[in-house]
Design a protein around this nucleic acid. Structure first.
Length: 479
RNA sequence: GUGGUUGUAGCUCAGCUGGUUAGAGCGCCGGAUUGUGGUUCCGGAGGUCGCCGGUUCGAAACCGGUCUUCCACCCCA
């Protein structure tokens, strides 16, 4: 009995029309990346564990696909002495009578064996591998270095809407300059690409880590900033009272929450929010610097103008990736239930961990798969993206086939995609095949046409049909 | 990681409180139509009812486990 085939969860197959639509997205993004002066690079699908581990926080480490060691790399496992095994099994609470191990213990085992022994991991994003790339190739690059990169990344997450375990990121980054010009450029890039893809209603949210640092300074609680922003983010959902309750539950004192109070008023227009935050951060140098940077970027963007994007300051934008130090971006498509479709930010010292100091960088990422889902839901894909075969020749038999193959050679030389049905079966069947494939034209060359040296060309969409010479067909189809 | 949800033909799904041979639509194959598709009509093929175990005279249906799907939280693209 044949087994039913399947693919790992969180992964997908792509049919030809889906690939066509995806390529349309990739091509649109690439075209703009090039226009803004970015050059493509590629890096391997997997990296050394030491390169990636610890760069995304604890959560990231957990979500990384580890490559199980093989051969000699496995030797440490075998070298474990009986006493170490004994200690481990005691620690893990293995019941030798039932041989049962709890799920928690298994997770621990995974940690011990896989996390420590895996020397290679699938890449989790494109930014950290890029930092590694810059450090390794610094002598071959001129700075500021601008690169774009479109490759898949993997996360051992639990799939749900808009969340896959294998997906594409389309990144553009600049390293070697702290100029705010690039922040502005990236906002324009978001606007241009998403507008070109047909999106009309989307919001670019912007924040600055220095503002968040300023808030921690004012509150004198630098380690709590994430908790605070996560709660603040819920104001629209659960209201001020709900947020206060949640903060109390998280163990914050009433006096502390009182100090937070002015932040609950961060609502309304960006202009108003900026005013509130400026007052709040009056005594924090770093905070005010963040506000200054933000203001400058917003002003520059306003001067240049945006097509469709709304630019909005959002303090609750923290983004888990802990290497961001300046601007933080996130893009949401409005009117669709979907997480952020793009993200990005500035990192002052990403290459620092790899031994290269003072290389400020800033970058963005387009989530191609989520953009695909959004365009699909909003019906924004152009009709003609899945460019199929131009001409299919109907097969009438050996003699006709030879003539058709010559025609096909000429058509192809003129960049017109064409082929002949492989066997002289019933015309009806061949027509149906052409129809199913969405072929644009079919060509009929039977005994009669062969004698007269002509081709009967039928437009499959209109149903119109006319007799033409090969040259006429070529001019007809290339104009 | 936490909570919930789903699994019956290639696809979308029916299948009443357990009862004999498991259904529909779409798709597929053949014919009506020997040089004309997307419409119509006729006929046909296709299912260990996710998997393992249990309850029962009897299980697609009930129970347990497991995998899978989708969703929310968390996190993020």
């Amino acid at each position: 009995m044949a087994q039913k085939p399947s693919i790992p969860k969180g992964t997908r197959d792509f049919l030809p029309d889906e690939v066509a639509k995806r390529n349309y997205i990739f091509d649109t993004i690439k075209a703009s990346f090039r226009k803004y002066g970015f050059e493509p690079i590629e890096t391997p699908s997997f990296e050394l564990t030491s390169t990636l581990l610890g760069k995304y926080g604890e959560e990231g480490d957990q979500l990384m696909f580890k490559i199980f060691p093989r051969g000699n790399k496995l030797r440490p496992l075998l070298n474990a002495t009986e006493t170490t095994i004994d200690i481990i099994s005691k620690e893990l609470n293995i019941d030798y009578n039932t041989n049962k191990i709890s799920d928690k213990a298994l997770d621990k085992l995974t940690n011990v064996f896989v996390n420590r022994m895996a020397e290679e991991v699938l890449r989790y994003d494109l930014t950290v591998p890029f930092a590694r790339f810059v450090v390794q190739h610094q002598n071959d690059l001129s700075f500021p270095f601008k690169r774009y990169q479109i490759q898949p990344v993997w996360r051992a997450d639990r799939p749900q809407k808009g969340r896959y375990r294998e997906f594409y990121q389309c990144d553009a980054d600049v390293v070697g300059s702290d100029s705010l010009i690039y922040e502005v450029d990236f906002i324009l890039l978001f606007d241009e690409v998403l507008s070109n893809l047909g999106l009309k209603d989307f919001t670019i949210k912007i924040n600055n880590r220095k503002i968040l640092a300023g808030i921690s300074e004012v509150l004198n609680a630098s380690d709590k900033i994430i908790d605070i922003t996560v709660s603040l983010d819920k104001i629209d959902k659960i209201g001020v009272v709900g947020v206060k309750n949640e903060l109390t539950k998280s163990g914050f004192s009433d006096s502390f929450i009182k100090k937070l109070e002015p932040l609950f008023d961060l609502r309304g227009s960006t202009k108003r929010k900026l005013k509130v935050i400026t007052e709040y951060l009056a005594n924090s140098n770093i905070g005010l610097e963040g506000v200054k940077e933000l203001l400058k970027v917003i002003k520059m963007v306003q001067n240049l103008g945006l097509k469709n994007a709304k630019l909005e300051f959002d303090v609750t934008l923290a983004r888990g990736l802990n290497y961001y130090t300046g601007a933080i971006f996130e893009v949401k498509a409005n009117g669709v239930k979907m997480g952020s479709i793009c993200g990005g930010g500035r990192y002052d010292d990403l290459t620092g961990v790899f031994g290269m100091k003072d290389m400020s960088g800033v970058g963005i990422s387009f989530g191609a798969d989520r953009i695909y889902d959004v365009l699909n839901e909003l019906n924004l894909f152009p009709k003609n993206v899945d460019a199929s075969l131009d001409v299919l020749f109907i097969n009438f038999g050996e003699k006709e086939q030879d003539a058709c193959l010559k025609f096909i050679k000429d058509l192809r030389a003129n960049n017109i995609s064409s082929e002949i049905y492989p066997s002289p079966v019933k015309v009806q069947k061949q027509m149906k095949y052409a129809n199913d494939r969405g072929v644009k034209y079919i060509a009929l060359v039977g005994e009669q046409e062969l004698e007269q040296g002509v081709i009967e060309l039928k437009n499959m969409q209109s149903g119109e049909q006319q007799t033409m010479s090969l040259e006429e067909i070529i001019t007809h189809l290339t104009h």
